[in-house]
Structure formats: structure tokens, C-alpha cells
Design a protein around this nucleic acid. Structure first.
Length: 790
DNA sequence: CGCACCACAATTTTT
DNA sequence: TTGTGGTGCG
């Protein structure tokens, strides 16, 4: 018999034990980890350790189940048990503390990026061990694919439907515009896609959208409705879904099919959503529906970091979470572990100017650190030089290149910086450039694989039907398409039975051969592992052979890329243990960022502020802080847009751990036009105490400053003493594996000779004369792993 | 059919 | 200014 006193002591001891397990967290973090039941909104400021909380919350669920909040005492509990619990941490005590532990497969943790999902998985693995493998830690899109692969046939797709990426969607729309004879000026495909995307977000079917458009008597909108309908039809015919469809169709599947909904709602006892401020309406619905069984939904977000409004993200989701879930509990994480005082104070001051926000103020236990350094350069060229100089200066004092990040509003701003870095031999890497999977040759091979998996995929079929050239011209393809339309077959089906069509007599043989090749590869893919299918594809299609015919450097790099794809396949098989074609294609379709930020390479990092979200760097350069650039022209005079820009600025500032430089140019040439800009209002919003304005030329708003002055001469001395400079000679320099005069083979630049080698910091600056791409200056440490001696 | 040249447009973009 | 996409010619 358990007395009331016994129960209370038992519950208290149990809670104390769990608390001690998470003693390394701060009180708010710990509270978040130990809050179990019902909806929970976690307002997590930048750098407040939200991923840590997410991980440990899951760990708590798996280890202790609902124990940290429950007032239930297990039936058979004895005095002896209590004694063990009260004695504190031991394996036995931990076992006793657990109450209804949550099975890992009943936890769904949704993120936005693959990077975030991967990080979550890796850290979960480290914290909870092998159990991590069963947790659904996925992106919105990959979770939807997983759900749809089971039941897509109920929606009229096959289970091996294809995923269209943005480029595919664009191509479909472009084709439709052409077929409909619509003027591209009046109907830009980008705009149309954004309208379609918005319609999907509101769950408006093409019919419903059309009805709405007709009611508005808007001719243009009515036309767009027709395009939308045709777009939907074509994707359906191709057995394809675009990114929005993945979410939309999942929501529809769950809404329309009681049994499917019940299955997932019973399955997911706990749902966690990361970056909740970036969810759009559909994603909100999805999360809400999936969590509909137990309503144990925990969302983590920061309204101040919502920067994807233009993509449909609505800050409403986070601002009104408490309305959506009246029983919701709210916990704010306001202690920042990333940035020093001045930086944080500046971030707070800037964001405070926004009206639409929940309101929270970050604080730090760190000291004030350096003030934010402002630099007003006469033009964008000097601005870039200033940045390069500061980085070089830091490097000579022992700071690795990779501790520096340069953030800008637009990709177009990176050029001048690249130029300045190249001239000084500063190794850098630009993120957000052309991605591996966007290369034409890679897309070709992937198109082959897509067609093998899904012959209805006409878009991709058309792409490769004559690549490499096999004598199937435009005319033949169009004729086939007409026949397909006439007989209500797919284009591919016409190819397969080409000999039956007298219209095709001349091309029939080639068409049939092509279809036979794809068919054979499909048969093979049913049994053989993917890498073998790839080899067979290369052999039978002659893709690489065709590239080898002409020995140009471009073709060589194309061959490299195609082969690189095979190593991607191999590592996919190795990582997942899955060697199916469909699995790999899903991965590729949803993975935009495979060559993601690798920490090994010691390079200065350059990217847009958008791509920097979620990252941190010891030193950050925020460049182009000018009215018209940041905030952008389009935001000036628009309240909501301006607030989004300000949030973007908040994100930028809070990326910096120890040092933040803000730069702007009085005159800037952008898109071939020179303009004179004032310093960004966001800079003016930073309190004087946190900002070192450096040297400000008289009348800095205008273009009358003397040209060609250099900042270092005219700027007053910094207040903080500059650390002694380590001369390159005294820095620890490893003996180089390479020597002057040697011939080397570089992975991207090819064959070359080392012309010079200059010690610099703990590294060497090498100059290599390449046969094909001319002389390049590289930092040896970074380059060495890409080179071998010849 | 492939390549060269010219016009045109250019926030941001997790999937 | 730079990159891309479309057109026209060899």
C-alpha cells in the first residue's frame, strides 16, 4: 500500500534525478526538456542552444518517458525502490525513474534543411545511441515523400512517382506558355510559379482557383488559372510532383483517408518542429494534422528570424500558436551562448524597431568584447579591399581563414570580394553558386535514371532521348507526342511500339532501340544494385564515350562530374544500406546542398545572409550596409518588407561570435550602374556605445569624399590594442610536401608546375602555372588535398 | 545539329 | 557588369 507521503517522495526523487541528468542545461532549457504533455512553444533566440534542447528533450522522452511531469507512481513501487531513487544517480535509479518510455519510432522531428536534419540525426545518435535510427528526424519534404511512397496510389499517382525540382517546374511552365501563345512579358514564368505556389499553399485546386479568378474579372488571372490547370495536368500525366505537391498531397492524403490519418496520428506520440517561424500554411496544416492524435506538439522558433516570407512562410504560425492551441505552454530561451556583449546589444537594439514580434531580449554572460567596427568605403572596390585586408591581418596573427565569413544581401555582391581575395591569395569559397546537381551533364544522367524509374516522366525523357546524339530529331519526337496524345498513351509507350505506327516508319528502329535500352535497364534495376545499373547505363547509352570523342577541358570536367555521380551513388549505398534506384533519386531530388559547408577546408566563407541562417562564425563581415541594398530598394516604404529586412539584419548580426565588421560604400557600381547610397538605417539603429564608426569622411552621405584614400591611414587607432603580429617566419610552418619546380596534378585545374612558394602564416602561398587554366595562387594547405605530385 | 553571337534581366531561395 | 537563353547561320 502506498501512502500519499510515499508517493510525493517518490515523485520528487524521480524528478530530482532527471533534473540532475540535465544539470548541464540552464533552467529554461531544462524546463523545456522536462515539459512533456501537450502543445509547447519554444521561443528560442539566436544562439540560445535550441538544438541542444531539442536533442535532450527527445533523449528525455526515450529514457524517462513521461516521468518528468507525471504524478503517477508505478503500482509495484517499494520503499527500497524509493531509497534507490533518493540515493541519486545509478543505473538502477535511472531504470526506476523511467515511466512509459517513448519508443523512438513514435517521435517525429521535422526540420527544413537536410543539413539541420543530418545534424539532428548525428547528435541524436551520439546522445541516445542506436535508438536514434528509428526516430523520424527528417525534413518536411522527405517525411512527406516517405508517407507518399506508401500511399500515393490512392491519389492517382504511382508509388514510384517522380519529384520535379524548381528547374523542372520552370521548364513545364515555359513550355505551357509557349503552347498557349502567352507573352512572356505579361506572364513571366517566375511570377506564374509563385502564384501557383501560393494557390497550393491555400489549398486552392486549379478549378477553385479558376472560379475565383473568373469572379474577379481579371483576365490575366484567368489565363494564369488555365496555366495552373495545364501545369497540374502535365505533372499528373508525368506521374510527377513538385516540391509544393509533396506537402499538399500529403495533407490531402491525410485529410481524405481516415485510415491513413489514424495510422500516423496513432503512431506519432510526439511531434517536434524546428524553425517554426519559417513554416507556410501547408506545413502548418501538416504538422497540426500529424500531431492531431496526441497533440503533443512542440514547436521551436524565433519570430525575429523569420526571413522567408517571400516563399510563403508566415510569421502568423508562431505569433498565434497560443490561439491555435489554447493549452499551449510557452518557454523563452533568451540566454545567448554565441556572441559577445556589444554584438548582442546591437542585435537587440536593431530588432526592437520591429512592431510585429513576440518580444524577447537576448542576454549573455560573456563580456562586452569588441565593439562593432563600421567602415565607410568610397566605393565597392575599396570596401572589398578593406575586408581582404582585415582578413589578411587576422591571418597573420594566426586566425584561420575559415573563421571569417562575409555576408551580403545579394549574390551579385560577391564579385568584387572574390576579385580582392584572388589578388591577395586568400582562399575562399562562395556558397550558393552552381550546384553539382544543376550541372547539365549531371542532370542528363539523372534524367536517364528518372526515366528508368518512371517512364511516364516525359520532361526528362525528352531531355535525354537524343543525348548523346542517336538520330532522333525534334520532328520524330513531336510526331510521337502527337500520336501519344491521339491514342491516349504516354510518349514512352509510343516509343516502345514504334513499329506499329506507319507514320514513324523511318525513325521506328531508333525509337524502339532506345526504348529497349531503357527497358533493359529497368529490368536490371529491379534486381541489381544501383551502381551496377549506373555502369550498365554508361555502357549502353554511350554517354561518356560521346564526351570522350572531343578532348576539350570542358568535356573532361563533364566526364569528371559524371564519374563523381557514381561516387555519390556509392556513398549513398554505403550510408543508407539502400541500393534501390528510387531511394537514391529521392535523396538527390531533395538534396540541393550535397557539397555543403565542409569544415575541413580552411577557406573564408562567402554567402548571402539567407544562407547563413543557423551558422556562426568568430568574425563576420556584413558588407553593403547601404540604403537601397540592405534594406533593399523594394523594401523602402513598405512596412512589412522593411520588417523582414530588419529581421534579416538581426540574423546577420547574430551570426558573429566575437567580431563584427559592417561596411558600406558611398558609391557602388551594381548591374553596370553607379549609384550613391546613404548608410543603412540599420547601422543608425545600433547604439553608439556598441559601434565604432571608425573614420567617417565628411558628408559621408554624399559622393564628395576624396577618392582613393585608404582606411588604415586615416582611421584613428582602434581602442583595443592590436595583438602583436606574428611574422610569417616565426609561425609554425610544416615542411611542405611540395617543392618549387615540381609538376602537380590538381583535381579541378589539371596539370601544372609550381612556380613559387612563399611562407605565409602557418601555411605557404603557392603559385602554380597550370597548363589549361593559367597561373593560380593558392594556399598550400587547402590545395594540397586536391593535388598530387606527377 | 552545333556553335556563336546578341539581347535581356538581375533580391533573397531551406526543398 | 555578368550570366543566360534564344535565334540564326554554317
Amino acid at each position: 500500500m502506498q501512502t500519499q507521503e510515499f508517493e510525493q517522495r517518490y515523485i520528487a526523487a524521480r524528478k530530482k534525478l532527471i533534473e540532475s541528468e540535465f544539470a548541464f542545461l540552464n533552467p529554461e532549457q531544462r524546463q523545456a526538456v522536462m515539459t512533456i504533455d501537450g502543445p509547447l512553444l519554444l521561443l528560442a533566440g539566436a544562439g540560445s542552444g535550441k538544438t541542444t534542447v531539442l536533442i535532450n528533450r527527445i533523449a528525455n522522452l526515450i529514457r524517462y518517458g513521461v516521468a518528468s511531469e507525471s504524478d503517477t507512481v508505478p503500482d509495484g513501487a517499494t520503499e527500497a525502490d524509493l531509497a534507490v531513487l533518493e540515493a541519486g544517480a545509478s543505473d538502477e535509479a535511472r531504470r526506476l525513474a523511467a515511466l512509459d518510455p517513448v519508443q523512438p519510432w513514435r517521435i517525429l522531428a521535422i526540420t527544413f534543411t537536410n543539413k539541420a536534419a543530418d545534424e539532428l540525426k548525428t547528435r541524436l545518435e551520439r546522445t541516445v545511441g542506436p535508438a536514434a535510427a528509428d526516430i523520424w528526424a527528417q525534413t518536411f519534404h522527405s517525411a512527406c515523400v516517405r508517407i507518399l511512397r506508401r500511399d500515393a496510389d490512392r491519389l492517382g499517382f504511382t508509388k514510384s512517382f517522380t519529384i520535379y525540382d524548381t528547374t523542372d517546374s520552370q521548364n513545364v511552365v515555359k513550355h505551357i506558355l509557349k503552347d498557349f501563345n502567352l507573352d512572356e512579358k505579361l506572364y513571366p514564368y517566375r511570377y506564374i510559379l509563385s502564384v501557383i505556389s501560393k494557390a497550393k499553399d491555400e489549398m486552392l485546386s486549379p478549378d477553385a482557383f479558376m472560379e475565383q479568378a473568373k469572379k474577379s474579372y481579371d483576365v490575366r488571372r484567368t489565363k494564369i488559372a488555365e496555366v495552373y490547370a495545364e501545369y497540374a495536368r502535365r505533372l499528373r500525366d508525368a506521374d510527377a510532383m513538385d516540391f509544393d505537391d509533396l506537402i499538399l498531397n500529403t495533407v490531402q492524403l491525410l485529410q481524405e483517408y481516415e485510415d491513413v490519418r489514424a495510422y500516423y496520428q496513432r503512431k506519432f506520440r510526439f511531434v517536434l518542429v524546428d524553425e517554426y517561424q519559417d513554416t507556410n500554411h501547408l506545413q502548418y496544416l501538416l504538422a497540426r494534422t500529424l500531431a492531431g492524435g496526441y497533440e503533443n506538439i512542440c514547436v521551436v522558433g524565433d519570430d525575429d528570424q523569420s526571413i522567408y516570407r517571400f516563399r510563403g512562410a508566415t510569421i502568423r504560425n508562431i505569433l498565434e500558436f497560443e490561439k491555435d492551441y489554447p493549452s499551449a505552454r510557452v518557454i523563452k530561451l533568451e540566454q545567448n551562448y554565441r556572441s559577445t556583449g556589444h554584438i548582442l546589444s546591437a542585435a537587440n537594439a536593431v530588432i526592437r524597431n520591429n512592431l510585429t514580434r513576440k518580444g524577447k531580449t537576448l542576454w549573455t554572460a560573456k563580456d562586452k568584447g569588441d565593439r562593432i567596427q563600421l567602415h565607410v568605403a568610397p566605393n565597392e572596390n575599396d570596401e572589398a579591399q578593406y575586408v581582404a585586408d582585415r582578413i589578411l591581418e587576422a591571418f597573420s596573427q594566426g586566425t584561420p581563414w575559415s573563421e571569417n565569413a562575409v555576408l551580403y544581401r545579394m549574390n551579385a555582391q560577391s564579385n568584387q570580394l572574390e576579385y580582392a581575395f584572388k589578388r591577395r591569395g586568400i582562399p575562399y569559397r562562395v556558397y550558393g553558386g552552381t550546384k553539382f546537381f544543376d550541372r547539365a551533364e549531371v542532370k542528363d544522367v539523372l534524367a536517364y535514371l528518372c526515366v528508368i524509374a518512371n517512364p511516364s516522366d516525359e520532361l526528362r525523357l525528352r531531355r535525354i532521348i537524343n543525348v548523346p546524339v542517336r538520330g532522333i530529331g525534334q520532328t520524330s519526337v513531336e510526331k510521337c507526342a502527337e500520336l501519344a496524345a491521339r491514342d491516349g498513351k504516354t510518349l514512352y509507350a509510343v516509343l516502345q511500339s514504334a513499329e506499329q505506327y506507319p507514320e514513324l516508319q523511318r525513325a521506328a528502329g531508333k525509337l524502339k532501340d532506345f526504348a529497349a535500352m531503357i527497358d533493359a535497364l529497368r529490368d536490371m534495376s529491379a534486381g541489381a544494385p544501383l551502381d551496377a545499373v549506373y555502369d550498365a547505363l554508361m555502357e549502353r547509352s554511350g554517354y561518356i564515350r560521346a564526351l570522350q570523342v572531343k578532348e576539350t577541358p570542358e568535356n573532361e570536367s563533364r566526364i569528371e562530374n559524371v564519374k563523381e555521380l557514381k561516387s555519390n551513388i556509392l556513398s549513398y549505398i554505403k550510408d543508407t544500406g539502400d541500393s534501390s534506384l528510387n531511394g537514391f533519386l529521392d535523396e538527390v531530388a531533395l538534396y540541393t546542398d550535397l557539397d555543403s559547408l565542409d569544415r575541413d577546408a580552411d577557406c573564408v566563407v562567402m554567402m548571402t545572409i539567407h544562407s547563413a541562417k543557423g551558422l556562426e562564425f568568430p568574425t563576420v563581415f556584413l558588407v553593403g550596409a547601404e540604403e537601397g541594398i540592405f534594406p533593399g530598394l523594394k523594401a523602402i516604404g513598405e512596412q512589412e518588407e522593411m520588417e523582414e529586412e530588419r529581421r534579416l539584419c538581426y540574423v546577420a548580426i547574430t551570426r558573429a561570435m566575437r567580431r563584427l565588421f559592417v561596411t558600406c560604400a558611398q558609391q557602388r557600381m551594381l548591374f553596370g550602374r553607379t549609384s550613391t547610397n546613404r548608410v543603412s538605417r540599420f547601422v543608425e539603429e545600433i547604439p553608439d556605445g556598441d559601434l565604432d564608426r571608425g573614420y567617417v569622411p565628411r558628408g559621408y552621405n554624399y559622393s564628395d569624399a576624396p577618392r582613393g584614400f585608404t582606411q588604415s591611414v586615416q582611421r584613428p587607432q582602434r581602442q583595443n590594442p592590436i595583438r602583436p603580429v606574428i611574422t610569417p617566419a616565426t609561425a609554425k610552418a610544416e615542411p611542405p610536401q611540395f617543392q618549387k619546380g615540381e609538376m602537380v596534378e590538381h583535381r579541378s585545374f589539371g596539370r601544372g608546375m609550381i612556380v613559387s612558394m612563399t611562407p605565409m602564416g602557418g601555411d605557404f602561398l603557392v603559385e602554380i602555372a597550370f597548363d589549361k587554366v593559367g597561373t593560380k595562387r593558392l594556399m598550400l594547405k587547402a590545395a594540397a588535398r586536391l593535388m598530387k605530385k606527377l
